[in-house]
């Protein structure tokens, strides 16, 4: 039912553990056909965006992911799984990403500790079922050196302050992606995955 994309990301297991904890049995796959047929897809990620894009290309995952999102099936991107959706990233020089969300991935401002590592507040900018039961300004666990900047500001569903306001949640219909790691964000992180699974189960277009 729910497919977690396995392209060698280090934190795959944490995501699987979180979904299991909620009582669901996700399928873990590196097979593009399985992603194409999935009811919903989770794209986890840590490390560098360009490497992740390379891995996804090598597996033939790019078109299936594009199609799942285009058809409005529930999709959850985590951290690098958010960044790769954008046009491109500044990380390690300019690298093209999947180009599903117009915008760029930029380096965090200088003068602050990079990576941003730890718990920071997410200010909810829109009403979306992914935030159901989660207080505005709740803390989530971040670890990243780059941040996303969507061209269309209405995509910014959650915002977090780190020297500058950064986009920490993108949500548009059934497409949800977070800069933080819900699987490492305690009970409220699990609540966010639980909200996503409810979106999957009700099957309604948000």
């Amino acid at each position: 039912m729910v497919v977690i994309v396995d392209y060698g990301a280090g934190n795959l297991r944490s995501v699987v553990n979180a979904i299991n904890k909620l009582g669901y049995q996700p399928s873990i796959t590196s097979n593009p056909a399985e992603v194409l047929n999935a009811r919903a897809v989770i794209l986890p990620g840590v490390g560098a965006a360009a490497d992740t894009v390379e891995s996804l290309r090598a597996l033939g995952m790019v078109d299936p992911i594009r199609q799942v999102i285009a058809e409005g099936r529930p999709f959850f991107g985590v951290c690098i799984g958010l960044q790769v959706l954008f046009t491109g990233t500044e990380e390690g020089g300019w690298h093209e990403c999947l180009g599903i969300i117009p915008g760029r991935v930029r380096k965090l401002p200088v003068g602050l500790k990079v990576p941003q590592m730890g718990w920071n507040q997410v200010k909810q900018k829109v009403s979306h079922p992914i935030f159901s039961g989660i207080p505005d300004g709740a803390n989530f666990y971040f670890v990243h050196s780059y941040y996303v900047e969507p061209d269309d500001k209405s995509l910014v569903a959650g915002e977090t302050e780190y020297g500058i306001p950064i986009c920490s949640v993108v949500a548009k219909g059934n497409l949800v992606a977070t800069q933080f790691h819900p699987e490492k964000s305690g009970e409220l992180g699990l609540k966010m995955y639980s909200n996503f699974m409810k979106m999957v189960l009700t099957g309604e277009q948000v």
Binding site: R13, N17, A18, K21, K184, S185, G186, E187, G189
Partner: peptide, 8 residues
């Protein structure tokens, strides 16, 4: 631990 503890 990782099956029941959801922090880093």
């Amino acid at each position: 631990v990782s099956e029941q503890v959801f922090i880093p």
